[in-house]
Nucleic acid binder design. Structure first.
Length: 617
DNA sequence: GTAGGGTTAG
């Protein structure tokens, strides 16, 4: 009843009163009265009530102390949603009044929403200096100015308006306003995530220069930005430099560095970091253990990974799903599927909810073991638990099919993914191209990788290595070398696999001089030749029937800490056999067996033929 | 409300 009377009066007022200063105040009073009595409903039902609204009125409504902040917000949201119905939208001043009232009411989340509207609206957004001077003119409160700047800073960060965030920061420094480190941290993190490494580092430097208090959190973020770009040496420099200013690294900082070395597979440096942690009395946590376990997984050292898994539980470090994923993946890579699945049961019994990562690891394990059908079943199981097929799992399954030459299935799978809106990525292209190489379809494989470039997917170093492998198998070393040089020029550093690919190409064709040159080059740039490098070279020497040179390489391996693989033994045994040196061949055969390798057909054949050769001599 | 770890290709 009261509402109806009020609305009638409201309407009468709108019809009779011309727009003027005093009627502005009356209209504002009417709106406030209505809001207090009946909320926003009357305006929703009769938007024409606000047809005379102008920014002055909005201003008056928001600044009316009788209207609670909650009603202000309701009214603000209504105006935002109905901008076409009202003749003018709230101006910057009205926004700031609202922001101030929300500040007083300690409603910071709402404050942030309103400032977000300011930041996103070109007609409202003034320079921070101008906005702050407007604030000083109206409210003489340092704390409010600081909070205003802080929230504006964060709003710009949230919207990735990085130049504006930087502007607010500089303004605060210049004006001597207190700066919140958490806000700066979100800026650092956002820059890092957007791959703006230099900006991230530069901002960290500005933080330090500004004299504000800095914690290990910000430092670790800057260090991580460097590590993710492989700039570990600079990261360590920064850590030392900050240590001099009293900011000590903690378990997260060390984990960041460890991660970088795990990625590089640099066991020596990893040990150095572990020693440093011990000296600093920094205990390992779940993250540290995860990193170390995945490092062992890289080298197939399942037993060591298992030892760590036990150790962490003995020490009372909580095992989480990421730890499980790592140890499961480790067992999968070693072909230890039984153990992997029993760990999977373990984690579900403990109440963890399996996710795409764990499933991904198991599916890959099954695919690599050639059990693609079981992998398919697991994918269905995964989906029935509400986890959707993602690009990684898709690529994993694709590889399972391609490695077994199941082209039809891989095409069907691709169709499924395209329906889901996933275009093949650089992994998918590479997987299919490699599959084609195995079927000796080199031209098709090349065409596919070129098609990838046409579609705008940038070739990464793995894709280029695949191409190098194709060209060198074809004997086209001109093209292989051109790609290799181009890769270096583009700053995509070749790694051991890249070098080994090209070396393998040369040795297969008996071009030993070029192969040794590359081995020297890789050592010079700090990449240690591994068992693949040695096996290729040794195999090449065998092809050239220089068995003594091959034996020299074989004997060099243990000196460099390299363990001959089954492929190494196969090459050297068959090389020796061909030369009729069956005695040495048998000696190495026995050595191979004691090293735990299962000999394959080729070894037997060459051993048997060596008996014929030596017998005829 | 803050930083660091897990699944795929050569």
């Amino acid at each position: 009843m009261a509402t109806r009377r009020l609305l009638l009066a409201f309407k009468r007022f709108l019809q009779t009163s011309p727009s003027s200063m005093s009627s502005n105040q009356e209209l504002a009073a009417m709106i406030v009265k209505t809001l207090k009595l009946s909320g926003i409903k009357p305006f929703e039902n009769t938007p024409s009530l606000l047809s005379n609204l102008n920014s002055r009125v909005t201003h008056l409504v928001f600044s009316n102390p009788k209207l609670p902040p909650k009603s202000c917000i309701l009214f603000f949201k209504f105006l935002q949603g109905n901008q076409s119905l009202t003749s003018s939208k709230p101006g910057l001043h009205a926004h700031l009044i609202l922001v101030f009232r929300l500040y007083r009411a300690r409603r910071f989340a709402e404050m942030r929403n309103v400032l977000n509207s300011v930041a996103m609206d070109d007609s409202l957004r003034w320079s921070v200096a101008d906005m702050v001077s407007m604030i000083w003119d109206n409210w003489n409160e340092q704390k409010f100015v600081e909070k205003f700047c802080d929230i504006l800073f964060r709003v710009y960060v949230d919207n990735k308006m990085f130049d504006d965030s930087g502007g607010v920061f500089e303004y605060m420094v210049k004006s001597g306003l207190k700066i919140d480190e958490w806000s700066c941290l979100s800026y650092l993190t956002a820059l890092k995530k957007c791959d703006k490494t230099e900006e991230c580092l530069g901002f960290f430097r500005r933080m330090v220069e500004s004299g504000m208090e800095i914690t290990v959190y910000s430092m670790t973020t800057a260090i991580d930005a460097l590590c993710r770009k492989g700039r570990v040496e600079e990261a360590i420099e920064l850590m030392k430099e900050m240590g001099g200013q009293g900011i000590k690294p903690n378990v997260a900082t060390y984990a960041t560095i460890l991660h970088a070395y795990v990625k590089r597979k640099d066991s020596k440096r990893i040990d150095e970091v572990l020693n440093l942690m011990e000296k600093d009395k920094v205990c390992h946590d779940a993250v540290t253990y995860t990193l170390l376990m995945s490092h062992y997984a890289d080298f197939g050292q399942v037993k060591d990974a298992d030892k760590l898994f036990d150790e962490m539980r003995e020490r009372g470090v909580k095992v989480d799903i990421q730890v499980y994923t790592t140890i499961i993946s480790c067992h999968c890579k070693a072909g230890n599927l039984k153990r992997a699945f029993s760990l999977f049961d373990d984690l579900t019994e403990k109440g963890f909810v399996p996710n795409a990562y764990v499933y991904g690891a198991l599916i890959d394990g099954l695919c690599k073991a050639g059990q693609v059908e079981a992998a398919e079943k697991l994918v269905i199981d995964m989906q029935s638990r509400g986890i959707d097929l993602n690009p990684v799992v898709f690529n994993t399954l694709l590889d399972g099919y391609c490695k077994r030459g199941m082209i039809d299935e891989s095409l069907k799978l691709q169709a499924v993914m395209q329906k889901k809106g996933f275009e093949p990525d650089e992994f998918a292209y590479n997987i299919i191209a490699s599959g084609m190489c195995k079927l000796k379809q080199h031209d098709e494989a090349k065409r596919l990788l070129f098609e990838m470039v046409e579609k705008g997917v940038v070739l990464n170093s793995v894709n280029i290595t695949t191409l190098i492998s194709i060209y060198s198998r074809e004997g086209n070393f001109n093209e292989a070398n051109r790609l290799f040089r181009e890769m270096k020029r583009k700053g995509q550093k070749p790694n051991a696999i890249t070098y080994n690919t090209l070396i393998g190409g040369y040795t297969r064709k008996g071009k030993m001089k070029e192969a040794y040159q590359l081995k020297d080059e890789m050592e010079n740039v700090g990449i240690m030749p591994d068992e693949y490098t040695y096996t290729s070279l040794l195999h090449g020497e065998c092809i050239c029937r220089k068995i003594d040179a091959a034996m020299k390489l074989f004997n060099e391996m243990p000196q460099r800490g390299l363990v001959p693989s089954l492929a190494t033994y196969t090459a050297i045994i068959s090389g020796l056999s061909k030369e009729g040196r069956s005695h040495e061949a048998h000696r190495l055969y026995n050595q191979m067996i004691s090293a735990g390798h299962m000999p394959d057909e080729r070894v037997y054949t060459s051993l048997v033929s060596s008996l014929h050769t030596s017998g005829s001599q």
